[in-house]
């Protein structure tokens, strides 16, 4: 009598191999394992639960369809994260096309405001408990524009270089640098004001 493989004890690489042969149960296990991480990345970029669910779901659909292309050069979860990031970037571009030119889009790359922000001399996150720090960072990230938040996520959380970010976002390296600089300065200022709010 054939026995059902114990998917839960298998490594991602084994599950990927089985999925590449069309084993949907193995793929289901991969989804089960990494669904939170993939959804979290979509949510951090979109800041909208509905869109994040849809995009993360679409990423899994794309992953299944393109599994044969996965050669194992990176980990499966890294590969999956790249897929969801690309989908989010596409969606952000579509959203941007739909909305009128916003004020944030006009002053984002010019390097105007951030140059005049006073330097935050005291580390605003020093001595904070990790949970509290995470909450504050999330709150501050939510206040950034989509463009600035995206560049910050790709650089700080996904460890992508300027060149790679520029390629994915479809802009110049100079724009990436400018956006990243503004995003960091704004984050410092936001984290400081959140600290002041608490004290």
């Amino acid at each position: 009598m054939p026995t059902t493989p114990d998917y839960t004890s298998q490594a991602d690489s084994e599950l990927v191999k089985s999925s590449q042969k069309g084993d949907m149960r193995a793929f289901e296990e991969l989804v089960g394992r990494h669904r939170d991480k993939i959804y979290a990345r979509a949510f951090s970029m979109m800041r909208n639960e509905e869109e994040a669910i849809d995009l993360s779901q679409e990423a899994w659909v794309k992953a299944w369809q393109r599994l044969v292309q996965f050669q194992g050069d990176s980990s499966f979860v890294t590969w999956m994260t790249r897929i969801v990031i690309n989908l989010c970037l596409d969606q952000l571009r579509k959203n941007k096309r739909q909305r009128a030119e916003s004020i944030e889009a006009m002053d984002e790359d010019g390097g105007g405001v951030e140059r005049h922000l006073p330097v935050v001399t005291v580390n605003p996150t020093e001595g904070l408990e990790r949970g509290e720090l995470r909450q504050r960072i999330d709150k501050a990230l939510a206040q950034l524009s989509k463009e600035h938040r995206t560049v910050l996520i790709l650089h700080e959380f996904e460890d992508l270089e300027y060149k790679e970010i520029a390629k994915r976002m479809g802009c110049s390296i100079g724009t990436v640098m400018s956006r990243l600089f503004y995003a960091r300065r704004r984050m410092a200022s936001l984290l400081q004001s959140l600290k002041k709010e608490r004290t």
Partner: peptide
């Protein structure tokens, strides 16, 4: 120093978010 502080504060400190739908339903 300010840029460094921001970078090190962000490093590994992304808020953990969980998918709000059940595993079976989502799959």
């Amino acid at each position: 120093a300010e840029l460094k502080n921001t970078t090190s504060a962000l490093s590994g400190n992304e808020l953990e978010v969980k998918l709000p739908e059940g595993r079976d339903f989502y799959f």
